[in-house]
Write a protein that binds this DNA or RNA. Structure first.
Lengths: 238, 238
DNA sequence: GTATTTATATTATACATATCATATAAATAT
DNA sequence: ATATTTATATGATATGTATAATATAAATAC
């Protein structure tokens, strides 16, 4: 992770966008921009909290370990998104890791400046609260899915969410390149299981592959995999 | 759900506690207190959002359906806690249900008043943001556990969390009465599996039962069930 | 440019957990 | 007080998903 000489434009992350213009010089002075290589870890679960990060360029995965063989990808942070925001409150250590999925530029804001920014910019504080509330709701849905939805549905859901978040390339493929292992970690399943399911989905022509890239060709049927088959309530009359 | 005649004391929920004293009359005037019977649904997933609730007396479970046979209990709200807070933002419908676990008194604040309260009381807004951030972190841990931790560990974790949240009765039992089904729904497993695991834990004398109540007698060993056995990294030297 | 690591692909097998079935006890309703 | 529903209890069976094992291809390092 090298310091970048070209600094960010102060108009990309949602902090810069929501802050008072008068506050931007303060941010400008104290931020640090870093180049991060593909696969490079930006911070690791358990590291002492120093501040928060924003994505200026590229995509970052936020993940949480289980033992030293498994992990769950909690979320992806794309251009403009915040990550490592658990310095807020009294957390001494990051509860999650962050890793670059591709060459990235990130912006680092130390905790003091971040807290000051929150105090000074009520719009930003409100936006951040909304971000947390949305993430929380999404997390609750994911919890429910991890508890009760079969893996096939979770893979389908993952593909739909990825399409929604990252959009499409000109060829109609989901505009993010994930390894199968990352897709598995995002789904909360093993590589092998996800692999099989992907094969199934291709066979049933709901998706199409091109290398690592995935195109959704039948979104309706894919989406239907994310719904529970409602078992009809029994008729209690004789 | 009947309106209560005895109103709350304006000093129990974390909203009243964090707000400016000058604001309390506004809350006092617009809140509505309700008596809720044990097992009564306060609002149901999909209901239109009208406002937020606070627990004045009793315990409430917040849960999310899967099909019409299964659910996941997302969290428990005890005295003073907020629930139904997803009116924030543009949510038109509650993404979760809330049900009284015992006879409760709850306080209802309509959305307009809640938004006004947020605007006027920056301390409260900050506290709420912290609540969301904490819940988010906890949700992320739970997601990881649901994805990778075996049910036995999740049951152990659930008991530990419940003890932490609800404390102990004078006899040392966890101070909340849950049905086995609720415990299963909180754990993200079936009744039968949880039942079997509880039996195991009793046999291994990590816990003790008295009716529905549970006492943790060997917290150390119980906690150890929540850790992954770290598979040692292979020695790469020949 | 070759070596080495990492990702992909695939089959066979094991196992944790859900499903099904059924009995009893406790709680709630009438 | 009796009926009915709901919760507890427990064994037998089914199945989804992980684990293990192994081969090949692609990417990265030296």
């Amino acid at each position: 992770m090298k310091k970048s000489k070209i600094p960010c434009d102060l108009n990309t992350c949602f902090m810069c966008k929501t802050c008072l213009k008068e506050w931007l010089p303060a941010l400008s002075e104290h931020r640090t921009n870093y180049h991060v290589k593909k696969g490079e870890v930006i911070f690791r679960e358990g590291d002492p909290v120093k501040g928060v990060y924003f994505v200026y360029e590229g995509n970052v995965k936020v993940h949480k370990k289980w033992g030293n063989e498994k992990e769950l990808i909690i979320r992806f942070a794309k251009k403009g998104a915040i990550f490592g925001h658990r310095g807020l409150g009294n957390n001494l250590h990051y509860p999650i890791s962050a890793t670059a999925l591709e060459p990235c530029i990130v912006c680092f804001i130390d905790m003091d400046l971040f807290n000051a920014t929150l105090k000074v910019n009520s719009d930003f504080a409100y936006t951040l609260m909304m971000f947390f509330a949305d993430e929380l709701q999404e997390a609750e849905r994911k919890m429910r899915n991890l508890a009760h939805m079969p893996v096939k549905g979770r893979v389908a859901q993952a593909l739909i969410s990825l399409r929604e978040k990252f959009g499409l390339t000109e060829n109609g493929f989901i505009d993010i390149e994930l390894t199968r292992q990352d897709l598995a970690s995002y789904t909360g399943a093993t590589y092998e299981t996800v692999f099989r399911i992907i094969t199934d989905l291709v066979q049933d022509s709901m998706i199409k592959l091109s290398g690592k890239s995935i195109k959704i060709v039948d979104g309706i049927r894919l989406e239907s995999l994310t719904h529970q088959i409602i078992t009809p309530v029994e008729n209690t009359e004789g």
